[in-house]
Computed example of a mutant assay.
Amino acid sequence: HAILRHLSLRTPKIRVRVVGTNGKGSTAWFLAAALRATGLKVGLYTSPHILRFHERIRIQGREVPDRLLRLAAARVRPYAERYRASWFEAATAIALVCFSKARVDVEILEAGVGGRLDATTAVPADMCLITPIALDHQDWLGESLSAIAREKAYAMRGCAVCLSAPQEPSVRRVLRAFAHGLAFARRWRGPLAARGAFQRINAGLAWAAVERLRALGRIPDRPAAAHRAIARTRVPGRCMRIFYKGAELWLDPAHNAHAARALAKALASAAPLDAAFVYTRADRDPAPIAEVLRRIARRVETSRNPEHAPPRVQAYLGRNPGAKILVCGSFRTVAAMLAAVEDDEGVARR
């Protein structure tokens, strides 16, 4: 709040918060695509990035230009240093400056962790979308689903419209206590380019947001265009298939058991996989993820260092050419693998 007081930000026509445990980025991507298709100028802020910071801030579907990013960073830096802002707080302020200067109609802000103290809730919003809530970041958010739900529910404060994906009963009770007018979205029906049944939950939430905004007269009345945009959207780094040196690699940032179960279901048709490499960050336990993935993979290897994934995977492929494997555990893991194979010949994505 202290930083934002100095920035004289322009208020967009619509600002949307997206919070939850899994599916925040995908939901934000679906909604951004849909609203762009209606003719609105949309700013999208997501995290983390995969290969470079620019991915976090998109205007009309494109990464923020260097010049605008540098200008915004220069504007924010003195205040970030004065108030000793965290890295994410500074990044969020930079995104808001970029959107303000680009004069977007809509800002879609994906929360980092939690909701009550998240930097994305420092600016008022019109709508809050809550994706599936699961056990994650317990050290910060609490040991139970109810405790985590309470932290995330705070993001609904001040929002005229609050929508949620389907939730566990204990989570539903907490969310409804915070917002009596909360509505729950249905799964997406019809074709969807994004892989995995879990993406139907995220797409359904985004579509519910479009329908509510349309009913309120807040967006142009172009439902067919919005629907097509969601159906065609693919989200970078999620359930991504790469053909690399004769092998079939699946990449996904799944970093908790809830996400792993959704991923296992999405890859059921590709099972059994020859191997799954679960490389999480140092502060996470890969064991619950590995336990889930043993249902679809003959071998599961774990580590708490994403940077170790590329050499281990490449060594495995050297011994097992043509293998079918999954690499997951964090966005850093996906980034490390993509960086390792990006310039190699024979790489194809589908």
Rank of each mutant, 00 (worst) to 15 (best):
A259Q: 05
R312H: 15
S144Q: 03
N320D: 07
A339E: 11
L35C: 10
C239H: 04
E248I: 05
I230R: 03
V76M: 11
G114H: 11
I289C: 04
R172W: 03
H137W: 09
A183W: 01
A224S: 13
R186Y: 13
P306V: 02
Q60V: 02
D136P: 05
L205C: 06
F53I: 04
R228L: 15
R228K: 10
R36L: 09
A179R: 07
F99D: 14
G322N: 04
Y83K: 00
W207E: 12
R281H: 10
N22R: 00
A194D: 03
W29S: 11
A226V: 10
T233F: 07
E168M: 01
A147E: 13
Q314I: 10
G217H: 02
E143G: 14
H258R: 01
V42T: 09
S86A: 03
R77Q: 15
I59C: 11
L192Q: 14
Y279P: 10
R176T: 08
R77C: 12
A247F: 13
Q199H: 10
F99M: 07
E291T: 08
A74N: 14
A194R: 01
G190S: 08
R58D: 15
G318S: 13
V104W: 12
P288M: 04
D139A: 15
R62F: 14
A194Y: 07
A260M: 05
A275Y: 03
R284N: 08
H54R: 07
K13C: 15
V334S: 03
P169V: 04
S86P: 09
T131R: 00
F30P: 12
E107K: 00
A91N: 06
A72F: 13
Y279M: 12
G329F: 06
P321K: 07
L51R: 13
A336M: 08
R298N: 13
A165H: 06
E307D: 14
A297Q: 03
K24A: 07
R36H: 05
L71T: 12
F30C: 06
P253W: 04
D221N: 10
N202D: 05
R281G: 13
R15M: 15
A102M: 07
R84H: 15
L31C: 08
A91V: 04
A224L: 14
H180T: 05
H180Y: 08
R241I: 09
L145G: 04
H255Q: 09
A80E: 09
E307K: 00
Q199I: 02
R295E: 15
Y279E: 08
V341I: 10
